[in-house]
Design a binder for these strands. Structure first.
Lengths: 236, 236
DNA sequence: ATGATTATGGTCTTTCTGACCACAATTGAA
DNA sequence: TTCAATTGTGGTCAGAAAGACCATAATCAT
């Protein structure tokens, strides 16, 4: 896996920015590097692209290796090409924005061979910060290589497209049976602001129910306190 | 320039999707390939990325080579990585969306060493088509490699961000002295629909004049027929 | 002068948005 | 059991924004 990179050659890698909503907070999965460079530093999971595979395939393969069994939404985010971004040599990285419900990730993270850890993404007026599982804060700039830039780019992109695309549904535990409050939680975590429940529901239903992309399955969920929520199904 | 690509190695290139508004129509600059593969076929201008330069630098360099003296707006569009996209071998291409006022391009296109040609982009219900300078139509799929896909991706992206970013101003002849009709022409060409002049002006001024990004230079342009238009300056 | 043309400002109606309230349906505590 | 707290759902209402449309201003061609 950690074979030497040849100098004077261009290498292509994919890096996965795996985002999820954990306990109501936007979070990212990071792995601690076990080899130089940046040994011991937290980084996005990455992988070299083989000569016969596309970047999309490589990203899917990466996900398979890092989180066996997880089938997540994935889209190309941006390509990072600074010549000095990797001290080993010329490595161009195509970053992928990967979205998955926390419940799916949880199972994979429990596997012994999986080394990824979940960091909360705190969003303040000065930008974003990472909160380690033990509560310790971390700056994006503390990540390996230019992964802090990738993180910021990805979060901004996600925020930018959450309300004119369908990405939010891929962060739901089950897009075939979700309540509007669950969807609202996704929006609030991504945008880092609370939304009015009534207006939110009106907006979502106007956008999706009128064209049949969302239908009420009329099954009432009976769980926590409060009135049980109606469940909906999303048509991707 | 057309040195052999080595097999079993990954090559990185940048392709430039140079868009402009020519005679009120969205247009793209293409070059006819003079060497195999795809000899004689129209293609986006492209260039290999050197080992010591970033893709942004390579794109700027490409522009310098193809259109000396033109200083255009440029942003990364998407990275195309299909393993079989180039018959010569493994070539990953980072596409750049490049926007320039037609008046600037015109000067460069007149130079004898410049071989680019301007194609109108016709937008119908079935997608886009290219109109050669001689009036002959051409499908995007007739372009070399996957350049048709790049073209479609770029046009869609431009349309998507024209009304929440500042890209439109980079298609104006002079963003330091333009009339609102000129800006409206840009919008109409990109979106391929006519807009109400009154509502358009209200929208633009509300978005930009209130925060000082646009200021009226109060110089009246005296040219064609009709009432002379007030000129504005855009602060980038 | 006169009509055609383009620019600009305004109205009016409809739609969308945000703030807010009322009530429904559940749970947990008194 | 009753009541308070909690969560979900529907509605109102005012203000903002968007779209259709008209009126007028300032130029040019004839």
């Amino acid at each position: 896996m950690h074979r030497q990179l040849e100098p004077d050659r261009l290498h292509l890698s994919v890096d996965g920015l795996i985002l999820t909503i954990c306990e109501g907070q936007l979070s990212v999965l990071l792995s601690r590097r076990s080899h130089p460079p940046c040994e011991g530093v937290w980084a996005l999971p990455g992988r070299l692209v083989a000569l016969d595979e596309s970047a999309d395939e490589a990203a899917r393969q990466l996900l398979q290796e890092m989180l066996p069994g997880v089938n997540a939404y994935s889209e190309q985010l941006y390509t990072f090409t600074r010549a000095d971004r990797d001290p080993r040599g010329r490595v161009v990285s195509i970053a992928y924005l990967i979205l998955s419900p926390w419940e799916h990730l949880q199972d994979a993270l429990a596997l012994p061979e999986v080394t990824l850890q979940c960091f909360r993404i705190g969003q303040g007026p000065e930008g974003i910060a990472l909160i380690r599982p033990d509560g310790h804060p971390l700056s994006p700039d503390d990540l390996a290589f230019d992964h802090g830039t990738i993180l910021r780019t990805g979060v901004t992109r996600l925020q930018g497209k959450i309300d004119y695309t369908d990405v939010s549904f891929h962060l739901l535990q089950d897009m075939q049976a979700f309540s509007l409050s669950e969807l609202q939680t996704v929006f609030e975590a991504v945008l880092n602001q609370s939304l009015d429940a009534s207006n939110f529901r009106r907006g979502i239903l106007a956008k999706y129910e009128s064209i049949g992309r969302i239908v009420q399955t009329s099954i009432a969920k009976k769980q926590g306190r409060g009135r049980p929520a109606a469940l909906y199904r999303f048509d991707p």
